[in-house]
Design a protein around this nucleic acid. Structure first.
Lengths: 337, 337
DNA sequence: CGTGATTTTGCACACCTATGCAAAGTGACG
DNA sequence: CGTCACTTTGCATAGGTGTGCAAAATCACG
């Protein structure tokens, strides 16, 4: 195995100093003549700057830590793929950390520690619960953090979500317009801001419209749990269900149709949240609120890079609106916009 | 922002030399007394070794590059999650690279280059086509590579797949035992070894059983394409379809049931390949060959680490057998084992 | 206690690049 | 040509760790 070719080798061949080589490759000023000589020598030798050495001295690794909890919900692989792509386009790379199923603060802290070890320039926390200690740790280390698809009030951290309250309200409007009289809600995990916000927006709008929600049960973003609480709501005689995310909605629909032999939307209308690709599959054809992943990711990346490049930048809280996708799993009001 | 605490700081406080600190943290030999002093000082100062500096000098980054093409097929997020976890357990981290949809060799090469730049200790290529140049490049750079869920004959690279030929044969056995007379095949992309192997195993076993395959059409692992060729096969009057992976099978089933109004499995039996979590959803209840992701990933990780730690290690080619999961999308032969 | 074998320790350097600083170079203008 | 403003260049050092080498310390044993 042959030794790596270094900037000194290039310098020697080009007849300049090592600094000159460094300057050419880090985009600092240099005369046309030098640039040409260096470029040619580098080409000939197959030189590439050593990223590690560069990071060591600049203190910037151009690596972003992406923490993600559960890829079983297809919303996240989609987001992950886009993060990787968008970050690549910006010259950054993605170090992925998965936090184990029932991870406590200890695990999260260990992961944060590992990210600090790798000197990541920024962190995206995708939908992971986090202790208060975290914000402080990152603050101390001066590492920008953006929460993706989850908020934490008063944390002072930047965050990007969809307009969850508004989304919930849209569903309420839609179901009421559809003439549903007994509406139930399989909520997203109430320990998460997204879950709470969707529920709040939904219930509040129902009230505004003069309807009571027949029942709200926490489905905890879990298949089995969603099915269990669906039965509770059915016992109350619901004719429509707003389910906290698509992933649970699939389980609910399967349960209604295949286990109970009910018809969707004839017996029960079902509305989800996320608009994952699968929601458009004919087997489900799920009416759902779209979370605009693409824009959410782009916004997150922009916010992160902004913070990285300008440490004094404000931590912004962004909500991105998404449309209600009208499909076949819920009765359609006539002429509903 | 306070300066990082270095091994010199710890050394000073512990009253030893910097080398001693280094030795303690890199697990080299040291006296009990030194170890204790260093540990205590490090604890007090909150010292953590600088990973970059360490990597720079050892030439080992403890980072694995994971290249993945398409996360829309839920098989890959599952694998990705497991890779991240298993590698974390082994003290490695995962740098994710996504290769754009219609990427040519140029893109792949650029990605490889970026991984070399980051001095990854090893590379997992998950189901990505690759030019011949690649193997040479990695060979030259001395970086171990393992192909995951795709093989390349004669590349000399290590690879881990499921027993695709055998799997295809199992499906043939099953469908014939089920009394199907006109069997068709929506093949996985024939440009990939997995696609070809499954098809070969399937067709060969059918022949052994004295049956002709009514038709074989390349579905290219793509929804729309799978649907298109399904129509071609239906025109030939098939009563059973073996589909090259679950992801396509869902599209095929949706098409058969929802667009054409056919019954699965009454009119047409459908069998998939992968056993992604969704295959067990009641809406599909897909009979399929399981790819044991867990074991495949563990095997891949083991093979990779083995190669990293012992550069002279042979590049092994491993096939892992998985069972046929009997569900409701295909007619069941009586007493089929 | 003396001697040789073995372990522990510190010194100094290597890994490879970026950057502050001062010297050298370039060009403009009177 | 002289002066000044400005750009380019090389020198030297920093960034934080691992490791070969030789000196020092420890241990075993007669």
């Amino acid at each position: 195995m042959t030794r790596r070719v270094t900037s000194f080798d290039v310098a020697a061949r080009a007849g300049v100093s090592q600094s000159a080589v460094s300057r050419v490759f880090s985009g600092a000023s240099a005369s046309k003549a030098t640039v040409d000589k260096v470029r040619e020598a580098a080409e000939a030798l197959g030189y590439r700057p050593n990223v590690l050495a560069r990071s060591l001295i600049t203190g910037r690794s151009r690596i972003i830590g992406l923490v993600v909890a559960y890829l079983g919900n297809p919303f996240y692989p989609d987001a992950l793929e886009r993060f990787s792509r968008d970050l690549q386009d910006e010259g950054y790379h993605t170090l992925v950390f998965t936090v184990p199923e029932g991870a406590g603060d200890t695990d999260t802290d260990r992961i944060i520690q590992q990210m600090l070890d790798h000197q990541v320039d920024g962190i995206v926390l995708a939908s992971v619960g986090l202790g208060d200690a975290l914000a402080a740790r990152c603050e101390a280390a001066g590492i920008p953090v953006v929460l993706f698809n989850r908020g934490q009030a008063g944390s002072g951290l930047a965050q990007v979500t969809s307009a969850n309250r508004l989304g919930g309200a849209k569903v309420a409007d839609f179901l009421v317009a559809g003439g549903h009289a007994r509406i139930g809600h399989v909520a997203g995990w109430q320990g998460s801001s997204t879950g709470r916000d969707r529920t709040e927006g939904f219930v509040a709008r129902l009230a505004e419209l003069g309807q009571d929600c027949v029942g709200v049960e926490d489905g905890r973003y879990d298949h089995a749990e969603a099915v269990r609480v669906t039965d509770l709501l059915l016992a109350k005689g619901v004719d429509a269900l707003f389910v906290g995310n698509d992933h649970m909605a699939f389980a609910v629909m399967d349960h209604l149709r295949c286990t109970l032999g009910l018809s969707v939307p004839k017996d029960v209308s079902v509305v989800g949240y996320d608009d994952v690709p699968m929601a458009a599959f004919a087997a489900y054809d799920l009416t759902t609120v779209r979370q605009p992943v693409g824009r959410m990711v782009k916004t997150t990346v922009a916010a992160l890079i902004n913070q990285i490049e300008d440490k004094s930048a404000q931590a912004e809280v962004t909500e991105i609106d998404g449309p209600l996708m009208l499909r076949g799993s819920a009765r359609k009001p006539e002429g509903f916009a």
